[in-house]
Design a protein around this nucleic acid. Structure first.
Lengths: 261, 261
DNA sequence: TAGTGGTCTAGACCACAGT
DNA sequence: CTGTGGTCTAGACCACTAC
């Protein structure tokens, strides 16, 4: 009943009508991606409120001067991100969720770098050693092959938060100690052209040993959060194996899971 | 140099040539999905080994009697799963990874149900109460609105593993205590037509209180793994809020992260 | 230069939801 | 019934990679 007296088509009013999208066909960035970005922005800024219908894909493609598959590709990417829901016979609407921003997988790029303010890193060890059996198995290389071992202490507000131990195939990357203290390991890997793709993680807990207690400024027996991770690049080759220990009193993993049907 | 003396086209040999795919156009299951499933199976069974090229999409579509977009859709779904990698100018190859199976997000459907053998659940509490401020905030409902509170003790091999406390909007679902003891909560929700879509989790650790120690058969002060989670359905509405405590000596979270560019 | 994936088009028919 | 998204086709041109 809430319709405009439009003519050509039964044009249900949609919050989208007000928006105009600026698509640049000369740009190297794909059209579907430009559209997706602008839609995402509109959702974030609340121009498209949760529950709003997006208007059907055909009209949308006509209005934008795009083909329907291209519009679908844009919408699909936002559905994958969890920002939109499609319902056959109904339409596409903005998801009813207060959780809008933290959809990306964090904790893979620097665990703390982005979270705590002013994190610092002290590199305790950075050298090449032959791989132990455990490390070799995790990295899929021969036992005894050369790897870089890295031990770092991560602090925020002058207090230690985590002790990080990482192993990387020696040939992979030059690890400058100085840069490691100002940049995260993953950022360095990305800069070196290594594109991370997936990681297998195990998160557990245990009581602090005497040594760990000293290192992290905790009492012996305090609860610690532990994490073991093997990270893979986009070809599926293991590029990093890490064994981290966090002070549970000062850190927790926070992440978003997406269930794919 | 390793080519067949084929004619029509420069047909690079691919492990795929040997396979034949059975596509059923009468089936209600989409063609791209049928193809994706059979490709995935071939990869899992090792018919397509890591590093194998898939052969170009055009040839593949011709061989299968499909259009290229359809073939691409199938391949794309496996790329999304992390089983394949595409490289422009090179081709599509099977990922170099030993991690093949645990790509799905587990730990969202029953944390232990699938892992530990013979898990049992004892429902300690199952009643309707007014929502506390914390629960109301997590579920996006009014404080004091009716919610179901669930307390369960999960055991394997006769030993307690976790204490699970969950809150659900009361109108959402009928929770039969008896069925809860044999089925996971998420399975019950799925059966009730609630399709989970995403979840926000916080994983931490702390020392066991005296009460928790008794409940979980640990010593007071032992390290425990904690998890708080809000789960959302496919419209983004919160459908469950949980606060779980695991015995760190007997359980760890194990999961796979996928990085989307 | 040749071959690959990345993008895009302009249609088509179908299945499902709400009327 | 109408309108929606879901699937599919048969092409096209481009950008990148490797030779």
């Amino acid at each position: 009943m809430a319709r405009t007296g439009d003519s050509t088509r039964t044009a249900t009013v949609s919050a989208l009508d007000a928006l105009d999208f600026a698509l640049d066909r000369g740009s190297p960035v794909p059209l579907y991606y430009q559209l997706a970005q602008q839609l995402e922005e509109a959702i974030e800024h609340g121009v498209l409120a949760p529950g709003n219908l997006l208007g059907n894909e055909i009209d949308l493609s006509v209005r934008l001067g795009l083909s329907r598959p291209t519009v679908r590709q844009a919408i699909q990417s936002l559905v994958d991100k969890g920002l939109l829901v499609r319902r056959r016979g109904v339409g596409t609407q903005v998801v009813h969720s207060q959780v809008k921003r933290p959809l990306e997988l964090s904790s893979l790029y620097d665990d703390l770098e982005s979270a705590g303010q002013g994190p610092t890193t002290r590199v305790l060890r950075n050298e090449r050693i032959p791989a132990s059996a455990e490390v070799a198995a995790a990295l899929g290389i021969a036992e005894g092959a050369e790897v870089v071992v890295l031990e770092r202490l991560r602090c925020t507000h002058g207090q230690p938060v985590a002790f990080l131990c990482n192993y990387l195939p020696a040939a992979l990357l030059e690890l400058d100690t100085e840069r490691l203290e100002t940049t995260g390991l993953y950022r360095m890997m990305r800069t070196a052209g290594i594109t991370l793709h997936s990681a297998r993680q195990t998160v557990g807990a245990r009581s602090a040993t005497a040594e760990e207690a000293v290192r992290l400024d905790e009492k012996e027996g305090a609860a610690l959060l532990t994490m073991r991770r093997t990270a893979y690049d986009d070809t599926g080759r293991p590029v990093e194996y890490g064994s981290h220990v966090y002070r549970a009193s000062r850190y927790a993993f926070d992440f978003q899971l997406l269930v794919r049907p």
